[in-house]
Design a protein around this nucleic acid. Structure first.
Lengths: 228, 228
DNA sequence: CGGAATCCTCTTCGATACTG
DNA sequence: CAGTATCGAAGAGGATTCCG
């Protein structure tokens, strides 16, 4: 919280980049933030979304990030004896950094090894970040990918992917994580409806959403290819 | 260079943020990039600009970043038996990430401990990043801060700070690093000419540049304060 | 002198086991 | 469920040495 106070190793430079990295430059820190961008989470949810993290490292990072004011611990009130972690505005202010980093790192999605962990929501986050402002009237769509639930909605004029199903959402896309990666990464633009996606509810709303996500991602990919 | 191939520890996730961090998430990596944004540098220049880095870590990072296509080694041709490191387009494509991170981390400049290392160019980079597009007709200005030479010029419609004096630049600002930090960080907007800066050449050009840098930085600081 | 490799110590990480 | 305890392995910091 206090300026310049960071746990762990610091760079010791009066430079905004170095000072920022003192806070979010430690291993796993930014990925914890990524998880919390999808909504508040419990300790075990985070472990689940960060394959390979050790519980002690996760606990240490959460303590540190809380201490620095990027997230808060909430004791859930009644029936559930649970603690949830939630981003503060200061943590949420990392959004542009995350979006740019996702854009920069997206070219590594192509050719990614076969044995990398995959989550549907990671890809939905990436596609939402890559896609520009959505057309007016686009509606929230639920996704169930390999049984994992998420939804994509408009927040602040841009698309954002969140965990869990949105309430009062009447459109749902079901399919496999693998297929979504295929559709997104494939150099050839596949028709939105082409994949093995099963759509429930308003097919037109689902198509609009899928089309915007895929088109935006593909166009971004195109521009990376030409620049790199 | 190849997708997903990173030296050292990897996250093993098919997510653009995790894959990006596999490349630039290691300690010192982003600060090496920051140094190279100011122009090509030799090994010892980098050591000088990264106080506390070990020579073996620096050598390892340079090897890794070269291998991944973010920078290149150049054998300088004739008289100097020197090697310079230079960003590739892929490395330079990190600019938006750096700018956003500098913006996010800038609030930690206020209240920074007294014993942090300071460099005039770090602050000039930060101010250039914070300041919006400069007015038409702004001219490149040289800075000599505590004997350290840099210059600020327009690149791609925005200000950018580089190491060394610009050639054919007729305006020079001289002063101390400490004073520039004071002027930038002070909550009260000090008049550009107020500090102990000595201006040589076209005073008006220097004032325009200082005014734009300081005003831009202060306005950015204001918006951080209100948001956080 | 620039550009490292080597050696040593210390910290951090990853994995597993354990506990309120 | 939400962490803490522990321990071997990997990475980082610092100094010294080496080589062209």
């Amino acid at each position: 919280m206090n300026a310049g106070v960071a746990d762990g190793r610091r760079y010791g430079e009066l430079c905004p980049i170095a000072l920022g990295l003192d806070v979010i430059g430690h291993r796993w820190a930014l990925l914890i933030i990524r998880e919390l961008f999808a909504g508040p989470k419990r300790f075990t949810d985070l472990e689940q979304g960060l394959p390979g993290i050790g519980s002690s490292v996760l606990a240490a990072r959460l303590r540190q990030l809380e201490h620095q004011g990027l997230l808060t611990r909430h004791q859930l009130p009644r029936p559930a004896p649970a603690v949830v972690y939630r981003l503060t505005p200061r943590g949420a202010a990392l959004e542009p950094v995350m979006v740019d980093l996702a854009g920069w790192g997206a070219i590594y999605l192509m050719g990614g090894d076969k044995d990398l962990a995959r989550r549907g929501r990671w890809l939905l986050q990436a596609m939402s970040a890559a896609a520009g402002p959505p057309p007016d009237g686009i509606q929230t769509v639920n996704f169930v990918l390999d049984g994992e639930e998420s939804h994509v909605r408009v927040i602040g004029g841009r698309l954002a992917a969140r965990d869990g199903l949105g309430r009062d959402v009447t459109t749902e896309v079901r399919g496999s994580v693998h297929d979504l990666y295929q559709v997104a990464i494939a150099p050839v633009r596949s028709a939105a409806a082409s994949g093995g996606f099963e759509i429930e509810g308003e097919r037109e709303a689902a198509d609009r959403m899928l089309d915007h996500l895929i088109t935006g991602f593909q166009q971004a990919a195109e521009s990376w290819r030409s620049k790199a």
